[in-house]
Amino acid sequence: MSNDNRRHVVPNQDGGWDVRAPGAQRSSAHTDTQADAVCRAGEIVGNAGGGEVVIHGRDGRIRDSDTIAPGNDPNPPRDTK
């Protein structure tokens, strides 16, 4: 991906969820729920021109990811026509 704009949604040790850029010391955002953090991460990535939102579970392991347009989705949906 030429535009390597990623944000990770990770659990915060004090409760809630953080949105973090890879290698960042501080969070881009903090929310009470994972769903709100995923939404905010999508807004941040979208405003920066698209990219990837990587969603971690409570155990810290990656459980899902989402490409935000106009990012380059490595696994686009199949055309069912």
Score class of each variant (00 low, 15 high):
Met1Trp: 06
Asn3Thr: 05
Asn3His: 10
Asp4Arg: 15
Asp4Trp: 07
Asn5Lys: 08
Asn5Phe: 08
Asn5Arg: 06
Arg6Ile: 11
Arg7Leu: 15
Arg7Trp: 06
Arg7Asp: 02
Arg7Glu: 11
Arg7Thr: 12
His8Pro: 02
His8Glu: 14
Val9Met: 05
Val9His: 04
Val9Gln: 05
Val10Gln: 04
Pro11Lys: 12
Asn12Arg: 14
Gln13Val: 13
Asp14Gln: 08
Asp14Met: 01
Asp14Pro: 00
Gly15Met: 07
Gly16Met: 02
Gly16Glu: 05
Gly16Gln: 06
Trp17Lys: 03
Asp18Thr: 00
Asp18Lys: 02
Asp18Pro: 00
Val19Ala: 06
Arg20His: 02
Arg20Val: 10
Ala21Ser: 14
Ala21Tyr: 00
Ala21Ile: 02
Ala24Ile: 09
Gln25Ile: 15
Arg26Gly: 08
Ser27Trp: 04
Ser27Asp: 12
His30Ile: 02
His30Leu: 07
His30Cys: 05
Thr31Val: 13
Thr31Asn: 14
Asp32Leu: 02
Asp32Ile: 06
Asp32Ala: 11
Thr33Ile: 04
Ala35Val: 09
Asp36Arg: 11
Val38Asn: 11
Val38His: 09
Val38Met: 05
Cys39Val: 11
Cys39Asn: 15
Cys39Tyr: 08
Cys39His: 14
Arg40His: 07
Ile44Trp: 05
Gly46Asp: 10
Gly46Gln: 08
Gly49Ser: 09
Gly49Tyr: 10
Gly50Asp: 10
Gly50Cys: 11
Val53Trp: 01
His56Ala: 06
Gly57Asp: 03
Arg58Phe: 02
Arg58Pro: 04
Asp59Val: 05
Asp59His: 07
Gly60Thr: 13
Gly60Gln: 13
Gly60Asp: 11
Arg61Trp: 08
Ile62Glu: 14
Ile62Ser: 04
Asp64His: 10
Ser65Cys: 10
Ser65Pro: 03
Thr67Phe: 00
Thr67Val: 12
Thr67Ala: 03
Ala69Trp: 12
Gly71Ser: 10
Gly71His: 05
Asn72Glu: 15
Pro74Tyr: 15
Asn75Lys: 14
Pro76Gly: 07
Pro76Glu: 05
Pro76Thr: 09
Arg78His: 11
Arg78Thr: 13
Arg78Asn: 10
Asp79His: 13
Asp79Arg: 13
Thr80Val: 11
Lys81Glu: 13
